[in-house]
Amino acid sequence: MDESAEAAFEAYFRARRDAVRRTAYLLCGDWHRADDHAQAAFVALHRHWRRIRDTAALDAWMRRTLVRSVVDESRRPWRRERFTDVVEAGAVASATDGVATRHVLVDGLRSVPPRQRAVLVLRYLEGLDVAGTAAALGCSEGTVKSQTSHGLAALRAVLGDTLDDLRPAG
C-alpha cells in the first residue's frame, strides 16, 4: 500500500480498535479470543484495503468479517463449541449490581449458539436494525427475526428470572 493508504488504515484502526474488540468480546465471551478475532479481522482488512472501494462500508465489512471469524472458529474441529440447555449450578452469576449484570449477560451469551449470539450482538450492541443485521450476516430478514427470537429464548432459558428485562423482540 502507498503511504496515504497506510495512513488511512492506521487512522481507521486507531478509531475502531476498541469498538471491534468489545464486539468480539460479546461474540465469544473471552478477551483473549476476542483479541485474536479482532486482530484477524484487522489483518484481513489491511490485506484487502485497496480492494475495498467504498470506505463508507468499512464498518459493515469489519462486522461481517468478525462475525464470520467467530462463528467459523466455533465450528472448527479443534475448537467446536458445545451448547447445552442444562447449566451447572453457579455457572451463571446473579445480577445484583452493574458488574454482576455484565458477567451474567456475558455468561448467558456463551450458552447461545454462535449464529444466534451474533444476531443479538449486532442488533442490541451494534444497534443494527433487522435489515442491517441481515446484510451483515448475509441472510434474510426472516432469518434474523427467527434467530433473534430463538437467541433471546435461549438466553432467557439460561438466565431464568435473573434478567427479567429480556423479552423476545422483532
Partner: peptide, 27 residues
C-alpha cells in the same frame, strides 16, 4: 424492550477491557 436490551448489551460491553494484545504495527 429493544431499548432495555440495548442498554443491557451496552452495559455488558462497557466492562473495562484488558490492554489490547495487538497494535497497529503488529497488524
Amino acid at each position: 424492550d429493544d431499548d432495555r436490551l440495548a442498554a443491557l448489551f451496552s452495559q455488558a460491553a462497557a466492562e473495562t477491557p484488558p490492554p489490547p494484545r495487538f497494535d497497529h504495527d503488529r497488524v
